[in-house]
């Protein structure tokens, strides 16, 4: 489904992505972790072309991203992206946030889009907040609406960029529950996060990045209990002690 082949990105002199080779199969749940500045956000932002790279090849659902001819709107319609800062549209209700893209990109009728939107809001547990504005919702609720917004396009891939890092601790659980449900239903997911509990529960693979490189990758039990590299071991011990 996703294939990075020798991808490199420089930001001026900084080598932010260093020879990335990665394959994600359909239905796989991949967790990407690492210290800040390791390039993990940059990595997943390449998948829906929020970031560009200078060298290498990237295939998403067969479409070559490195090719300038690829239609971005078509690509992005099939990928859902959830931001750390939610970025809900403040001038629209929750339902309107969710139905905007189906109406204008997939050209679904307003009635059908609203029915679909309500369905997705039920799925994230917020059907009663359909007519609320983002300012009236808590952080956790906003993020769940953001997930519904991504799901409304029936995407093939869902990308999460530190979805719980901006939330107060008591709200992290409700968002992770939604994500766990999603993973169990077979969605292809790439999640950048520090929530190791989530990784243990549903990740098929954990990928550790540092300074732009893929250092280690493996199933969660192996990664957390028996890291193969020293840097990964250091990182894990730092997370667990805090």
């Amino acid at each position: 489904m996703i294939k990075f082949d020798g991808v490199n990105k420089w930001y001026g002199k900084l080598h932010v992505l260093n020879d990335i080779n990665l394959e994600v199969a359909s239905g796989e749940v991949v967790v990407i972790c690492g210290p800040s500045g390791s390039g993990k956000s940059t990595l997943i932002r390449c998948i829906n072309r929020l970031e560009k790279f200078q060298k290498g090849e990237l295939y998403v659902d067969g479409m070559p991203l490195h090719d300038h001819g690829t239609s971005l709107t078509k690509l992005r319609a099939d990928i859902g992206f959830v931001f750390q800062q939610f970025h809900l549209y403040p001038h629209m209700t929750a339902l309107q946030n969710v139905t905007l893209a189906p109406i204008h990109v997939r050209k679904v009728s307003k009635k059908d889009a609203e029915a679909l939107g309500r369905q997705k809001l039920i799925r994230v547990g917020l059907e009663d907040k359909a007519d609320a504005y983002p300012t009236q919702l808590s952080g956790g609720q906003q993020q769940r609406v953001a997930i519904a917004r991504g799901l409304a396009m029936s995407p093939k891939i869902m990308l999460f960029d530190e979805p719980t890092s901006a939330l107060d601790p008591e709200m992290i659980g409700e968002v992770l529950d939604v994500m766990v449900k999603l993973a169990k239903e077979g969605m292809t997911m790439c999640v950048v996060t520090h929530e190791m509990g989530f990784a243990r529960q549903v990740a098929d693979r954990v990928i550790f990045m540092d300074a732009g490189q893929l250092i280690e990758t493996g199933p969660p039990t192996q990664f957390f209990d028996n890291p193969q590299t020293k840097r990964a071991a250091q990182f894990i011990s730092k997370i667990l002690t805090h």
Partner: peptide, 25 residues
């Protein structure tokens, strides 16, 4: 800037992003 990114990520064209998300705000 996040508003642009969120709108773009849903597959909206530049003009749709301006018309539906950016200009109203």
């Amino acid at each position: 800037a996040g508003q642009w990114e969120a709108a773009a990520s849903s597959g909206l064209t530049r003009i749709q992003q301006l018309r539906l998300v950016i200009i109203p705000q």
